[in-house]
Design a binder for these strands. Structure first.
Length: 544
RNA sequence: GGCCCGUUGGUCAAGCGGUUAAGACUCCGCCCUUUCACGGCGGCAACACGAGUUCGAGUCUCGUACGGGUCACCA
């Protein structure tokens, strides 16, 4: 068989060689140990949690080592492409602090950065493989492949194009020529080598031979049988499959660390083989487990279709600050992050010593309760100005009516937000901006919903003696004194020791006032609340 | 079905042959406090199962069960 003749027949337009490519994309000039990583999404435009995860890992790996982190668009599947998706991805990730050193609009010399623009490059390597007898055209139709699969299922054989099922593997040059003349479409398949010579350093996919070994910092050491399937390298439109593009691109773009979801684990033997056959040094791999979600009794992968919290936009709508999402991701990525945060409450999360080895091999359950807790901490650390800025920005987008109220008197709003803020033990009332409306409701007459206090008579009586000029200790002494007259024990401890003879304690008296004033059972410090409300409004609510 | 991965309290998780099996979230109790919170202290609650190796196993090996992934001209 004349492979060279076949190669020229199949890819006459190819003019470069692999050596040309090596010269055009030489090893990057980076310091020793610098890591080159990439985020490589399909251009669907939809950014989800599952994408934010690996992009964090990639960015940290590159940044921490003085390397390069770039964006490459995997647009080899035309059916999935969405208009304007690239900009959406860049902007969406940018909101979460993910920045690329190189991308389509910022060429670092290793582009193009989208795969459709790289088709010429793939064809150079495709031709080379054909010349070496390591790839061949396959004319099998979709139907033929489907019936092959059905037969394999019936026979309980291994699925896939291999062995006696690989009908096009040994087509003669004449037969190929004839089909090409007929205008038949073909895909280019890998011809899995059967002789040690052709296989090079790669294990031969025969019975029980050597295993393919993967050393993954997150997963540990994994052994798998070598690939034996003649996978498709180029689709019938000449565009590469993920596998082929992965090998060619990540080599030429000099990627050192491939971070991807662990759904790729199963195809690792193929990738291992491709790198070896093409003579490329293999990158390191880090496979991350998918995010899971509680579903009925068990757990399942977080789903784009079923779970709204999968989309990043959901967090924006709910009003989770960007920092909350970042912190939560870090806690899931490296469980010692929380300890680090406690020790370094004011540090930028980017300075956390991230380690891929500390990543969990199993998929973490996404826990909204935990997210809320993280968020309360994040928000409690913010200044009132920051809270005001983020809250109004959120309300402007998602609750215009609320936004109008908030910005009517910025000084007033900011004063409300500074209650219980700052100091060593800040309040933790809100986890997301969407909760702020309820939290602040009683400060705005438009939002205030009165609730009947358990002891309206006491409230009315208190309205008569309220002195807005009194300092806090006098203010409370007055409540205690009046409470005593109404059957509320002024001393909580005494009341607990012996409640007989009392209606309740001063805590119950306060609860009545709080309900009348705020319509809620919990609120910030009442003294400050009443000060903010002003005498007139406070008395009016107490008299209701 | 083949191959691969995983399984420590309700959840997230430390743990790397000898620990009273950390810590965080949730829930409960107590304390602090002039009220609501915050905070502090404490409590409930776990090594999927069965063999084996070992003086000794959550930790190593094998098997079972249960979850998950993958087996496309999708990534």
């Amino acid at each position: 068989m004349d492979w060279i003749k076949l190669a020229d027949r199949l890819y006459p337009q190819v003019d470069g060689t692999p050596d040309d490519m090596e010269r055009k994309y030489p090893p990057r000039n980076l310091p020793e140990g610098a890591k080159v990583t990439r985020f490589a999404p399909s251009p669907t435009g939809f950014i989800h949690m599952g994408a934010l995860f690996p992009s964090f890992v990639c960015m940290r790996l590159a940044r921490d080592s003085g390397g390069v982190f770039f964006l490459r668009i995997e647009d080899t599947d035309e059916k999935r492409a969405v208009e304007g998706a690239v900009a959406q991805i860049v902007e969406g990730l940018n909101d979460y602090g993910v920045r690329f050193d190189e991308c389509a609009v910022n060429d670092g010399g290793y582009g193009p950065y989208s795969q459709r623009a790289r088709v010429g490059i793939y064809h150079i390597y495709a031709k080379e493989l054909v010349r070496r007898g390591l790839a061949y055209p396959c004319f099998c139709s979709e139907d033929a492949l489907a019936s092959m699969r059905a037969e394999q299922e019936a026979e309980k054989a291994n699925f896939g194009y291999h062995g006696r099922w690989a009908k096009c593997r040994d087509l003669s040059l004449e037969s190929i020529e004839e089909r090409l003349q007929n205008g038949e479409m073909f895909v280019l398949r890998l011809r899995v080598p059967t002789s040690p010579a052709a296989c090079g350093r790669h294990p031969l996919p025969d019975e029980g031979g050597r295993m393919v070994v993967l050393d993954d910092p997150a997963k540990g050491r994994i052994e798998m049988p070598p690939n034996e399937i003649d996978h498709v390298l180029l689709k019938s439109d000449g565009v590469p499959t993920y596998h082929f593009a992965h090998a060619v691109d990540d080599h030429l773009m000099r990627v050192t660390h491939v971070v991807r979801g662990d759904e790729w684990l199963a195809t690792y033997p193929l990738h291992h083989m491709l790198f070896d056959l093409l003579g490329f040094p293999r990158p390191k791999y880090i496979h991350i487990a998918p995010l899971m979600k509680q579903d009925g009794g068990g757990k399942r992968k977080l789903s784009k279709r079923k779970d709204p919290e999968c989309a990043l936009s959901w967090y924006a709508e709910q009003g989770y600050p960007v920092d909350t999402v970042r912190e939560y991701i870090m806690t899931l990525l490296n469980s010692n992050f929380e300890d680090w945060r406690r020790a370094n409450p004011a540090s930028d999360s980017n300075t956390f010593p991230f380690s891929p080895k500390k990543m969990n091999a199993a998929g973490a359950l996404f826990d909204l309760q935990k997210l809320d807790d993280v968020s309360k901490n994040v928000i409690s650390r913010m200044t009132a100005e920051e809270v005001y800025r983020q809250l109004t920005a959120w309300a402007e987008r998602f609750d215009p009516g609320f936004h109008t109220l908030l910005s009517r008197d910025p000084a007033y709003t900011e004063a409300l937000l500074s209650i219980g803020r700052g100091g060593a033990k800040p309040r933790k009332d809100i986890a997301r901006w969407g909760e702020a409306k309820a939290y602040l409701s009683f400060f705005f007459d438009e939002l205030f919903t009165p609730a009947a206090p358990p002891d309206p008579a006491f409230c009315k009586a208190y309205a008569g003696i309220y002195d807005p000029e009194a300092p806090q200790d006098e203010w409370f002494a007055a409540i205690k004194a009046l409470g005593g007259q109404y059957g509320y024990c002024p001393d909580v401890k005494q009341y607990k020791a012996d409640p007989s003879g009392w209606k309740g304690s001063v805590a119950d008296a306060s609860a009545s006032l709080r309900l009348a004033l705020t319509g809620r059972e919990s609120s910030p410090d009442m003294f400050q609340v009443m000060q903010m409300l002003g005498q007139e409004r406070a008395i009016k609510r107490l008299m209701m």
